[in-house]
Write a protein that binds this DNA or RNA. Sequence first.
DNA 1: ACAAAAGTGTTCGTTCTACACCCATGC
DNA 2: GCATGGGTGTAGAACGAACACTTTTGT
Lengths: 246, 246
Amino acid sequence: MEDKWEIPRVAVAVDLVVLTIRAARLQVLLVERGIEPQVGKLALPGGFMASGQEDLDLAARRELQEETGLHAAQLHLEQLRTYGAPDRDPRERVITVAYLAVLPNLPDPVAGGDARNARWLPVEDLLDAPGQLAFDHDRILEDAVERARTRLEYTTLATAFCLPEFTVNDLRGVYEIVWGKPLDPRNFHRKVTGSDDFLVEVGMRTNKDGGRPAALYRAGAAKALHPPILRGSTTGRGADGTRSRA
Amino acid sequence: MEDKWEIPRVAVAVDLVVLTIRAARLQVLLVERGIEPQVGKLALPGGFMASGQEDLDLAARRELQEETGLHAAQLHLEQLRTYGAPDRDPRERVITVAYLAVLPNLPDPVAGGDARNARWLPVEDLLDAPGQLAFDHDRILEDAVERARTRLEYTTLATAFCLPEFTVNDLRGVYEIVWGKPLDPRNFHRKVTGSDDFLVEVGMRTNKDGGRPAALYRAGAAKALHPPILRGSTTGRGADGTRSRA
DNA sequence: ACAAAAGTGTTCGTTCTACACCCATGC
DNA sequence: GCATGGGTGTAGAACGAACACTTTTGT
């Protein structure tokens, strides 16, 4: 290591990719930039590390709260990776630590704080037509979505998209929407209910989806899934399934 | 985002977990600290970002070169994660971006640069008895080893531990040593030779291991493995296998 | 001839897939 | 009754683990 006096200090930012499912689509929380550079452009919520004594994860939680009015309760938050290309911010050298956050579809949580201009946009629209986001946020979003997709395979992340109580149908919806492909409802049901500590039955039923009432579940204690639920699974609803009769 | 004038600037370091296999053990490259704090303690090689215009990945490559005399040629290097606990360096706020590097067992590469005091130590010894490393490097090492272990399952990382030409036996050695458990040689052979673009036969044979000469391979173009080679695989050499006759 | 390692074949059990089929409810 | 979704059963395919067996070298 070099001597301390020569060390360049740089600004460290924290950016958040906040994902949820609204209107049956995977959506990401974006803000309209209010200051230069790139005023008016859409960007991931985030900001610079506040004090010199703030932990990175804490900074991420604080930014989320400040910019979106969302509280930390029951929120999945994990570090994604750090982006440090020298020219990623035209002002000066900025290194950003990106986080992935996952929320259930709350009624309309984006209200308090600096959230005046925060909005949800479908991920698909942004990835299909890059260039809408400021800085390298297209790239960060892409990495985050890919991370979320693999996390569904190997961890219980899917429950973070759900309200505290949910049905197997809700959970399958998460997988189908995030992966963008249909799954066999029957095999899916067996897999998730058979996976140890993934789901715990709450004892009640709901008929919100019509048909026979479905059991309600909460997220269990398991964080990892063994065996995993792989994307290469069931191609879709079979001939027996109802929807393919079109 | 806040205004630029209030932003605290912090020192950004890059630390490297350089892994290789020597003497049939997974070993990590460490340096003895020459300056305060924690002089004399072992630490991961690394240092502060040099100029304000250096890409993170480049900084990692430069540090590796400077501290160990290793060249970038044929080296696996990937970002691990960023560690930002406020008290991780007693001097001041330091954020470190950790990288995982994997090398083949070169004759004795640690020579040039500031490498006077660089040395290889078995990972197992360090993880079994924590506290030997400076700062939070125990934790970083642990994360890096876990990352390497899962990378073997889903990617072709294992070839990065091998010299340019290697046998299936060499490759199996990598898996057995990194995972710390024996694998069935016959099933392993079938798996890796059957995986598309994982290995390309070089056309020559070697008898360095005795017995029937083994085919030599180079790393193929594939980066990901489908299907993966899972750790939950074969428990070990069966009754028919030669080694279990003890 | 024998040991030792490379490499192939085969069997058996588990898991995944694609369905058929029954269950419980609203209309 | 009939439509709708919830949930179980099951046959066949695919895959992995275990291991017998053949091949090719060195001594």
